[in-house]
Design a protein around this nucleic acid. Sequence first.
RNA 1: GUGCCCAUGGUGUAACGGCAGCACGGCACACUGUGGAUGUGCCAGUACGGGUUCGAAACCCGUUGGGCACCCCA
Length: 427
Amino acid sequence: MHPISPVKGTRDFFPEQQARRRWLAEKIRAASQAFGYHEYEAPYLERLDLYAARSGEELVREQSFVFQDRGGDWIVLRPELTPSLARMVAMRKSTLALPLRWWAYGPFWRYEKPQKGRSREFWQWNIDLLGIDSPWADAELVAIAAHFFRSVGLGPDRIQISVNDRRLVERQMDSLSIPKDLRPEVLHWIDRRESSHGSQRPEALVGAGLTSRQAEGVRGLLDQRDAWRNSEELAAFFDGISAMGASDYVVYSPSIVRGLDYYTGTVFEARDTTGGLRAILGGGRYDDLVGDVGGERLPGVGFAMGDVVLSLILEETGAFPDLAPAPTQVLVLSFPEVSDAHSVQLAGELRAAGLRAEWYPAQDRVPKQLKYADRNRIPIAALLGPQEVEGGQVTLKDLRGGTQVTIPRAEAAATALAWLAGPATSS
RNA sequence: GUGCCCAUGGUGUAACGGCAGCACGGCACACUGUGGAUGUGCCAGUACGGGUUCGAAACCCGUUGGGCACCCCA
């Protein structure tokens, strides 16, 4: 039907949707800055080798947009930010003052099969605290997430942040005498057990090489809701969460392990408590990441949140405000008897006074021009017809209330500003 | 990679195998320098290619596109 369609997995943002995206970006900025984080940004294009360091080249090639540039180098449209962050920090480590609190919100690309809550082009909030080992650093990141959810109107009844600690999980595996080489498989089993609907039975673990007693032990771990008390780190973490006022959002969950290999301590994810427990953000502590790209070891903790699932939830809950304010404050109408130059000059005078002004770029009938202003929620119309030009005047009409005045042209901007500053005038 | 569902004006939706309607939108007029409302008129559609049939938007096959679930999720 359409000769040109958008690239699969991308989204168009018409003005109304873009306004929502701006609103969301502003909430993200506000939450980040409220905790003293600095905004940064990395290139959208990175060398393939950057990801090969830990993801495996094959994985990146299959699930990222990869191409060869004209010089033959393999380039990736960045699928995530953390390796870029690690690279930037490794480059400047000696001059950067720790701790580092950095955040970014920008586009990412993954070559996936698009479906609900997943697209090939998305925006992602990344926020990290580098250089601090303390569990309170982990707590701060989770508290930022809670702060953000609160700020967009998503309460703890709707959002829950589940936390676990890889170090605790490792000790639990130790106590079950589970061999190191089987642990990735076990973690994967745990991860899938609660996140997907497919019922993962302990027998699958036996199939993977565990004894039935070990498999039963792993299953039993998932019921120990108080196991965090056995973890010094998690106990301190929850003290921090409490002090930061985020306890209502946060819960210990033995089944959260996260897929990423680079997490070394806490792992956490925020989920929608309705709608199938969709994951909204995920993060954790990674103490070796910077070292992985060739820098010195640097402890860090952070999380990433995509805009796709979150936007779905915000739409469901009606959290997006009904915005779309008019960019234009004054519309200068056109008249056949008056040259466009006059209209454009008047618009320029209004802009010089600090107003946002546009001129109607065609000589349509006045009712149509006013209708245009009305539909675009432009509050004030300026009429510069032959009568006004002759008398050096301008007619201003307040479309919100209907008040209309004809005044000397020099007073037009001041009058419009006064109207906009006060409540809508009425006649 | 596997499976299921869908495809009708610009948008959203109707139509037992028998005249493709409705709503929104856009345009025009009522109203030639005063908007939102109302009324009237107009604009504009069965994704593509085959097949079955007297007759296909509908049924069958294929293609393309889209959605959803699984897999994966750095």
